[in-house]
Amino acid sequence: MAETTTNRDRSTAQPAFRATGLRKTYDMGETQVHALRGVDLEIGAGEVLVLLGPSGSGKSTLLNIVGALDRPTAGQLWYEDTELTALNDHALTRFRRAHVGFIFQFYNLIPSLTAEENVRLVTDIATDPMPAAEALELVGLGDRRAHFPAQLSGGEQQRVAVARAIAKRPHVLFCDEPTGALDSKTGIKVLETLANANAELGATLIIITHNAGIAGMADRVFNFLDGRIASIEVNETRIAPSEISW
């Protein structure tokens, strides 16, 4: 897919997320682990954002908090005009159901269900889903919808997981090491699928990765170190996944 979108095109969009002073501290016996140390950020609607940094630098903690899977110890977080840090657990569940899709390194497919049935698990509870078969067509697996996970390659299973995430037409896709278990050829196919979801659904796309080459497909790159955003890189023009050096 040709990529012509520039970061300037997205700079005028209303922020999808805003955060001020996000902190997350875990008590480990008598020791405190500071996973986030006061993070301020804005993430634009429709933006592609890549989070880079060593293990333990705070990337996954931030993703879990912004995705409403976890709460910060301190700080405030908004999604558009809603302060997520002020919501109770029930309201956060409704937020995730209505707005968010998650994709992880391991596919979490149910082995006894076909690809289409795995996707339908989400469409049965979403408010405005696309048909499961349509979601599988979007990820290039329309002809594999009756296959079980064991009959699919690793890359195909990950694309089923992507189809499951996009089937409810989410406003935001959170991806934690989505290509971490894949070879370069298969990983690029998954990244192309994610780029298409960003382009066709307008979904904000946030990707955690250890693969610095993936940063080229982002509008911006947050480099994490010791629980903070150490630096931010801006790509004036995004590259297509097929151009990524693995």
Score class of each variant (00 low, 15 high):
M1D: 04
N7M: 06
R10E: 09
S11D: 11
Q14A: 08
L22I: 14
Y26S: 00
E30V: 02
T31A: 04
V33L: 12
L36E: 09
G38Q: 01
G46H: 05
L49Y: 00
G56D: 01
G58P: 09
K59Q: 08
G67T: 15
G75T: 10
Q76D: 15
W78G: 12
W78S: 07
D81G: 05
T85W: 11
T85F: 03
L87K: 13
L87R: 09
N88L: 08
H90I: 13
H90L: 09
Q105K: 03
N108R: 00
L109K: 06
P111S: 03
L113N: 05
E117H: 02
E117R: 05
R120E: 12
V122K: 07
D124I: 08
I125Y: 10
I125W: 05
T127S: 13
A133H: 12
A133C: 03
E134S: 08
A135N: 06
V139I: 00
G142A: 09
H147N: 08
F148M: 10
F148S: 01
Q151Y: 06
S153W: 07
G154N: 03
G155K: 03
Q157H: 01
Q157D: 04
V162M: 03
A165S: 02
L173G: 09
D176L: 09
G180E: 01
S184D: 08
K185P: 01
K189V: 02
V190Y: 05
V190C: 10
N196P: 01
G202F: 12
A203T: 14
I208G: 04
F224M: 13
R228G: 02
R228E: 05
N235I: 06
T237R: 15
I244A: 13
